[in-house]
């Protein structure tokens, strides 16, 4: 029992280190999209790991911790996707080393189509 608790505590510690790496990535990355990549994703795994560690320490709390893990897994990708689309729509610039931007052509195509629909 004691061994399981110590393993759980170490998993929580690993999760907190992932959270710290996510925050460092948030500071170091050059543009918004890369910040979303480094920030929200690494911290998702960190949070899941720390909930799993608490789950190993206190097995009696499994119901609420499971609901928390599921809600983090469902809500997090949605919010980062919505933020990325809003940033691209606002015209937040990509960093200088970016290789391709296939999405901009598509966006211009949609804009032209909308204008045609409004004028007719």
């Amino acid at each position: 029992m004691e061994l399981l608790a110590i393993i759980g505590a170490l998993i929580t510690l690993a999760g907190s280190i992932f959270l710290l790496l996510g925050a460092i990535g948030l500071l170091r990355m050059p543009d918004s999209y890369n910040r979303i990549q480094a920030g929200t994703k690494a911290s998702t795994l960190g949070t899941i790991l720390s909930f799993a560690g608490i789950l190993l320490i206190m097995p009696g709390w499994w119901g609420k911790l499971l609901v928390l893990i599921i809600s983090v897994i469902i809500t997090n990708p949605v919010s980062s996707h919505v933020l990325a689309r809003a940033a691209h729509y606002m015209g937040v610039p990509l960093t200088k080393t970016t290789l391709v931007d296939k999405y901009r052509e598509e966006e211009e195509y949609i804009a032209v189509k909308d204008q045609n629909n409004e004028s007719t």
């Binding site: 999209y33 979303i36 990549q37 480094a38 994703k41 690494a42 998702t44 795994l45 897994i73 469902i74 997090n76 990708p77 949605v78 980062s80 996707h81 990325a84 689309r85 691209h88 999405y103 598509e106």
Partner: peptide
């Protein structure tokens, strides 16, 4: 799309 977003390194925009 959600799985692609959740694995870091790739992010679904639209």
């Amino acid at each position: 799309a959600n799985s692609i977003t959740l694995t870091p390194g790739t992010l679904t925009i639209d």
